[in-house]
Every structure is written in C-alpha cells, then in structure tokens.
Amino acid sequence: MGILMTKQVTKRFGGLVAVDAVEIDIPERAIYSIIGPNGAGKTTFFNCITGFYIPEEGDILFQGESILGLSPDQIARRGIARTYQNIRLFSNMTAVENVLVGQHPHMKAGIFGAIFRPPSVRQEEAQSLQRAVELLHFVGLQGKGNWVARNLAYGDQRRLEIARALANNPKILFLDEPTAGMNPRETAGMTDFIHRLRDELGITIVLIEHDMRVVMGISERIAVLDHGSKIAEGSPLEIQRNPQVIEAYLGREGVEAAQAGSQRRVERAV
C-alpha cells in the first residue's frame, strides 16, 4: 500500500454525483497526476482528501491510517499540504508571513507565549523566521520576503503558495494546476522544481494538470477521471494509448474524426 490510498470515495451534492467510487493508490515518493476533462471531479476529489468535503461513502487512508472525517487542520497536521487552482494566498500579509502561517502546526507558542515572549518563544520565532527565509530561497523568492503577497507577480504568487505548503513539512503535496497561466519557459521551470521537491525533499507529489506535456513528461503514474469516475490508471504511455481516455477528452465523434483524419493522411501518403 502506498502513502495515500482511497477506497470507493464517493461525494454527492444533492442529486449530482461529483466523485464516484474513486480508488487510487499512490506510492510513496511518486509523482502522481490526476487528469481529466473539465468538470471531471478532480478538485472535488482533492477536497475530499484534504478534509474540505466529507465523502458520503468510502475511506481515505494516509500512511495506513484512516483520515476520513478528520477536520482540515487535523489532516494538515498529519503532513498533507496543498495548493489551489485559483491562488489563495493571504493577500494582505507579506510573503514571509504567509510562510510563517504555514509553519503554524510546528510551532507551539500560545497566547501567554505571545504576550510574555519568554526565551523559548523568542527562539521559536527566530528559527521559524529563518526557515521561512530558507523556503523562500528554495522556491526562488529570495529578497521578496517583505512584499505584500498581492503585489507579487503571478508566477511568484504560485511559488509562494508552494513555499507556504512546504512550510508544513508535508509528506505529501497536492498541487492543483500548478502551471496554469504559465508560458512554456515558466512551465519548464515549474516542472524542474517539482522534480526537485521530490528528489531533494522526498515529498510525494500529486498533481492535477491540464497541460499534457507536463503530465506526460513528469508523471510516473496517472489516473484519469471523467464524470466523477476513474476510467483509467497507469504509466503515461499506457494512458496515451488508452482509447477510453482519448474518447473522454475528444468525445466519440472527435475520436472518429481523428481516426478518419489519420486514415486520410495514411491514404495520401501512400
């Protein structure tokens, strides 16, 4: 069993089944992608894992223990972190403050510590600040620590979100469309960065992505969702050739058109 396993996870909203009995098993230290057309239920599935939603059916096991029904902050403390599709930074706080918040579960100071600031709290603050600066450095935001988050450029905001997520010392990191809105060079940078996260920090990475080059280039395993169900799972090569996946993305007529098109090309060439 991998670091994260979901069993028959189902989430309904009224009559709509957003996630339908999805089962995945993510090996530790893998780079795992979840893809699918828009509205397939990918983000909803993420939300189930991170505790925003409680699935109606199924179970979610992290490191062998069920995390079903835990609140998001309890799940965060177990070592699960995430970023968001639409960047959700704490916009009016500085970059370094954002990262410091990320370290919240690993700090201990309470209200008395805050008011009286005994040496232990002072040390904790200093160490956390240092770690925050290191993390900013790691994601490439050195020198911008005092910038208010909403003033950062889009690409920097994405990095900050990742830095904030890393501040939690997670064992598994969920990235929701990390390359959205990026040009090819930035995308390549992000791809390298994701590799570093796994290689240098040993974090398991789970991605939701739409950019197929990224998905195919970076993933070790891919799961494909469509209309809430998992329709395929495997290596990038297997997924590329899977007819159901192609149909999900292009639709049956699209598949037929593509086949017809490729047939014509073959005929013309001959």
């Binding site: 965060a76 995430r82 959700r88 704490f90 918040v101 919240h104 100071a109 603050e125």
Partner: peptide, 21 residues
C-alpha cells in the same frame, strides 16, 4: 505572534487557514 498571524490568516481566508493546520 503566532496567534496574531493565525488570526490574520483566518480573516484573509478561513478555509485555507484551516487547511494550514
């Protein structure tokens, strides 16, 4: 302080703050 930052995080985005632990 840590609690002050937690408050501000809750103010900015309660759901994300919760997800931060």
């Amino acid at each position: 302080s840590r609690i002050g930052r937690a408050w501000m995080a809750v103010r900015e985005d309660e759901d994300v703050a919760e997800a931060m632990g």
